[in-house]
Design a protein around this nucleic acid. Structure first.
Lengths: 197, 197, 197, 197
DNA sequence: CTGTAAGCGAGACGGTACGTCGAGTCTTTCC
DNA sequence: GGAAAGACTCGACGTACCGTCTCGCTTACAG
């Protein structure tokens, strides 16, 4: 998170502490859930002073957010695949795969909860995580428009909301994760012709 | 929530306390947010002992959930309007209107957050709130199938996920509420022909 | 310390907690010294929540001050013995005996230190402890004047300062406690004729 | 305090840092009291690294002790004045004057408090400060014995305890400083005939 | 019409975690 | 190698709520 200024005196930030903290945060969340995640617990598990956590992150949620970025490659592929349908499906499957990584779903549910409770973290979560993923999907849509194979079933904004809405709603409000079948049906609906006729 | 058993000794449950507690919970949430809602705060504002809250509700979230049902008519109209398109749009607009009631959005965001944190409340929230609303939309879809005017753009289950997903995602992850235009575009997408040709 | 208001609803202050806290405070001080006395340590040793300590006492020093009053009978005898010399010597010996009770010297040194550091506690210590003891000696002097056997070697104020000064200075600034011989010499100096000619 | 070993490599101890640290320690104590005196605060105010303080002094109390010696001339005059009475009174008045220097009383109260809390500093304070002052008074008494004008009201040891006891007790336990009148009465009591017959 | 079993207000209790402060040590860079 | 800057571990601080409990009062049904 916060960076140590480059040309200054004094010791550098300990990379060992940093990664131990991130690992601890992620592991605790995966093992006992976000509710049981405490700054004291993170520090204890990481073998670190509590102050070292507070020095670099404003809250346990920010630690976990960064831990997530380290653990799972949060940036979804947006390589050009030549077709909207293929790219859309790939995007959804990547998101699906991300949620299958052990601990990631628990972490995301905790972070979304925290974002509702703390307005400050909410802003950081939106701009630092949600927005990045929207941008990825927006890139796919932009390319489709260039190519002329966008189906125009709905405004891009709404398509984005529908994709993420489905993913998040399933995660937050149900016990069933989004399945492969669901992904296909969703892609069908969003107007793309099936990839291979 | 819990009912007083009939035919027993002692005074009945105080209706005055009950409604004061519900009102207090809703007001505090509306004014300072769910994070600042505490059982002690509810009791204080309601002029009630803390135990009286715990006697009837297992947690502050359950109080708020009930308060919500009292404040806003949570049950959405599913009257037969003769057309899938009309009923779907009405359902979406009703949901939209509900979220516009001051305090309701804050309460729902808090409850969804709590549902992520506490597995027990999560179950109650899903079955006592989310499921009811899914059932309402399922009824609309059922009637459409009977009538034969369901568009079959996607499995009913997925349609439901998409509708609620869009509503919740907008609520939880963005600052923009779902607009009238969005509702129309959503209904268009979900395959219904425009109401009046 | 603080008293529970007499005619009020709700549970009474737990006498068990109170005495466990006082005992714990005194014991910890006696065993490891005032510096190592912490509110957390008191609470832990007393098997009590930290808040319960803070509810009734403003600081660890106030706990210890009260513990002292419980442990050692802090009020010195000022019974009429018929002679200034006898009463003065008795007063000094009582003070001397008090300091010999295990733990009392350590506690008093800690409290005097705290009184220097915290102005608020300083005031409480002076009025709640030091002043009481000055009053006892003042009573002895008053009686001597009535009787006419006060030696008038110095103003009463100064005599009091000298007696307590000697006691405290020995306690705080040296390792040697005030001995029996010292007490006798002090009484001789302060002008009283020896008790038994 | 600690001296830089002679004939070694590297820069010498910075005299500028040393005096800045001593000045900072004394000023902070005078302004906000000993409790608020911290090593970090001293270093900050002196524009110095924290380690530079720890390199040369074992604790903030030791810094202040040295600062005191620099600020106020702690060594009390024990010049031969030809008479016990004169010298005793001079000694008391010098001590009295010392305590009137702004900040000195606060510093002494803090140091005496610290001496109670930390056994190590206690030893240094006793031998490095209290004992020096006792020695000064002992010199006065020794000369009086040589001269033959010592009043023998009490053993020298006790006389010393009484003088310092009165001074310290007034400082630590009351709000009234020792007055000129008190000094006179004390000297009268300690048996010396008035200076000029 | 009386006893007794709730409901209720108040709030003390044992806990857990919070976020902050300072202690004393260690590390890096500059001079 | 001294000194600035400051990151580090550690331990205690005093606070906020948690959920449970105990008190003394007030109902209102049951015998």
């Amino acid at each position: 998170m916060t960076e140590t200024a480059p040309g200054r005196r004094g010791p550098k930030r300990s990379e060992q502490s940093r990664s131990a903290i991130l690992a601890a945060a992620f592991e605790v969340t995966a093992e006992v859930g976000y509710r049981a995640l405490t700054v004291e617990g993170i520090a204890l598990r990481a073998g670190v002073g509590k102050q070292t956590v507070y020095r670099w992150w404003p809250s346990k949620a920010d630690v976990l957010l960064e831990a997530l970025a380290v653990r799972a490659d949060v940036e979804v592929s947006v390589d050009d695949r030549g077709s909207y349908r293929v790219e859309l499906e790939e995007f959804c499957r990547d998101s699906f795969a991300l949620l299958s990584v052990p601990g990631v779903a628990a972490a995301l549910r905790g972070l979304m909860a925290e974002a509702q409770l703390g307005p400050d973290f909410g802003t950081r979560f939106r701009s630092g995580f949600l927005q990045r993923r929207r941008a990825a999907l927006a890139e796919v849509l932009r390319r489709a428009h260039e190519r002329g194979d966008a189906p125009h079933v709905a405004p891009d904004e709404l398509v984005t909301d529908l994709v993420f809405g489905a993913i998040w709603y399933r995660l937050l409000a149900t016990d069933r994760p989004l399945s492969e079948t669901d992904v296909s049906a969703l892609c069908d609906l969003l107007g793309a012709a099936p990839a291979a006729p």
